[in-house]
């Protein structure tokens, strides 16, 4: 026994952890933005009349949702260059997380779209709106309101997934923590601080999502 906690070494490198956290947030943010676009297009394709649209969308969702994300990350980073597609670590990770989140968001959005009464689209058509105008002014805004609660938890879990970028040496929080751990041997201290940083960030994200939800709630 006799292990005394000493956080000095961790505090000395705290700015590294902060930078790692910031990078993780940036990765998640970029991936989610891209993922939302992919997810939205896929969700509409999943609900399309034409089989030619539904088939590839369904295939994409099935494949991605049934492959571990770590495998996807390693595949994009190590296997794609073999096929002549060379990406930097960060680009590679963002792309992977975007494709991964796109499949999950597609399912979330699909549920949100199904909950919209078809009469609203018809009311839009009846006043002369085009399908595209109906999507942008009516369907998507309502869908977003429908999915906000699950969108919040998806965003948080995607942020946590950025820790997997450590596997390809992207210097985000987990990667930096491991480095400090190796350099200082302050195992417990380092991981306690890193964990608390994740917890605090996720809690803050949840609070922000709740605020957004409140703002977008339609008065009744």
């Amino acid at each position: 026994m006799g292990y005394t906690l000493n956080f000095d070494a961790v505090w000395r490198s705290f700015d590294l952890l902060l930078a790692g956290l910031a990078l993780g947030l940036a990765l998640a943010f970029a991936a989610i933005l891209l993922g939302c676009v992919i997810g939205l297009v896929t969700a509409f394709a999943l609900l399309a009349k034409s089989r030619m649209a539904r088939m590839p969308a369904g295939l994409y969702v099935t494949i991605i949702r049934n492959t571990p994300i770590l495998v996807l990350i390693l595949f994009t980073y190590f296997a794609l260059p073999e096929l002549g597609i060379r990406l930097g670590k960060i680009e590679s990770f963002i792309l992977t997380l975007a494709i991964y989140s796109g499949a999950y968001l597609a399912e979330v959005f699909r549920g949100g779209l199904l909950a919209i009464p078809p009469g609203l689209r018809e009311a839009g058509l009846a006043i002369g709106l085009t399908e595209m105008q109906i999507r942008t002014s009516i369907i998507v805004p309502l869908m977003i309101r429908n999915v906000l609660p699950s969108l919040g938890s998806t965003i948080i879990s995607l942020f946590k997934d950025t820790s997997l970028a450590a596997a390809i040496a992207v210097p985000e929080l987990t990667f930096e923590a491991r480095k400090i751990n190796v350099e200082t041997f302050r195992v417990i201290e380092t991981w306690i601080v890193a964990s608390l940083m994740y917890v605090a960030t996720c809690t803050a994200l949840a609070a922000i999502m709740r605020k957004v939800e409140q703002r977008l709630t339609v008065p009744r």
Binding site: P117, E122, G124, I138
Partner: peptide, 19 residues
């Protein structure tokens, strides 16, 4: 879409845009 605007329609379920 242009031809639809020649007519107006009111539905049994109102179908107002709730947001």
């Amino acid at each position: 879409a242009r031809q639809r605007a020649l007519t107006g329609m009111a539905f049994q379920q109102f179908n107002l845009f709730p947001h």
